[in-house]
Design a binder for these strands. Structure first.
Lengths: 196, 196
DNA sequence: AAAAAACACTAACACTTGTTAGCTTTATTG
DNA sequence: CAATAAAGCTAACAAGTGTTAGTGTTTTTT
């Protein structure tokens, strides 16, 4: 008989990781204790270990899920047949939308990756580096083709990525501009700033 | 007889706070222990308390020193007699230069203020809010005068401030573009992105 | 040289941390 | 219904946390 529920990922585990993400975002990874997390999940701290094997594993899961999503996105976009500046625009839109819709995960993986346990830390760092280099190459291409101003591409990458991560404070502010408007404003400023 | 050394701030205390700044930047406030700090200073943990009264006080000192510097800078610039876009440019240059020259302090006050002990936390938050509002008003003025594109000013503020804080990753990267070039590139992208 | 101030040390405190062991309860399967 | 698996609980561990008390040592001032 066909099972209706998926056989692989236990839902309970996913709940824990989701709640951990919110907790880590709010208090930071190091200041969040397993007892804090347990209370939010509604369980004793020791019970968490029936679903995960360590605190670090939770962080690792969050970080690499996000890293993979961004990585496969940039690959898809970069191999498509559009201009450099359109590529950058598409990448930025993906960043903005991800930051709007998966706020907690993106924020945590951006801010707390330093605390990844050791085999994963260096792995994560090189993925990060690869991602930036890839963006940098797209920009350099755009400069070579005259679509983009003659700027230092690594500086441009740095501006783009950090500007987007500023959506963090948008989430916390009371009177929020609607998400679509935020996206259009961001794109307008950043793309116009680069365009020749 | 006139004392040569200043009578107020003991040098030892300043050393501790400076080293704490570097430590907090590297590992984060919560993951930094007083024993870590003591070892860097070259002293036992308990000895630190001859110069400071708590871990939180160190953070507080770092955060408010930086906040005051930015606050008095924006006041000076805002009351000067230049165009709105020139004001924004001047503010941005101050941010970039501060990030280049007082990296650790700025980074810590930007990233770790959440952990401020409680009377100070809300104080810091309202200073932060005031600062952003002030920048927002300058931009709105610029829009009204036709110097700046018709954008949502709070989004623009958010982009500016976070883009600058991206200099964090410039500091860590191997092959650094020179600081002046970084500054010019940043200004070019951001100001051109806003200018009408 | 005496007195005072500044600074460091050792020992210990009360508490929090992540995690394990062992056992019991609930849910799923045959 | 019996058996198995999944998920919870209590208790406890070893190590690390910020901080205090009390004492000794070095430096500065008189």
């Amino acid at each position: 008989m066909a099972k209706i529920k998926g056989n692989k990922s236990s839902t309970r585990r996913d709940i824990i990781i989701t709640k951990a993400s919110a907790l880590f975002r709010e208090k930071g990874y190091s200041a969040s204790s397993m007892r804090d997390l347990a209370e939010i999940v509604g369980v004793e701290a020791a019970s968490l270990y029936n679903h995960i094997s360590s605190k670090g594993e939770i962080l690792q899961e969050i970080c690499f899920k996000i890293a993979n999503e961004f990585m496969s996105n940039i690959e898809k976009i970069d191999s498509s047949n559009i201009s450099s500046i359109e590529k950058i625009e598409a990448i930025l839109r993906f960043h903005v939308q991800h930051m709007l819709n998966h706020y907690e995960d993106v924020y945590v993986s951006d801010r707390e990756w330093k605390h990844l346990p050791d085999p994963y830390l260096s792995n994560y760092q090189s993925q990060r580096r690869a991602y930036r280099q890839r963006m940098g190459r797209i920009i350099d291409d755009g400069i070579a083709k005259g679509e983009i101003k003659d700027i230092d591409s690594s500086t441009a990458v740095l501006i783009m990525l950090h500007a987007v991560s500023g959506i963090e404070s948008w989430h916390r502010s009371k009177k929020k501009v609607p998400g679509e408007l935020l996206e259009e404003n961001m794109l307008m400023i950043l793309i116009d700033g680069m365009r020749k």
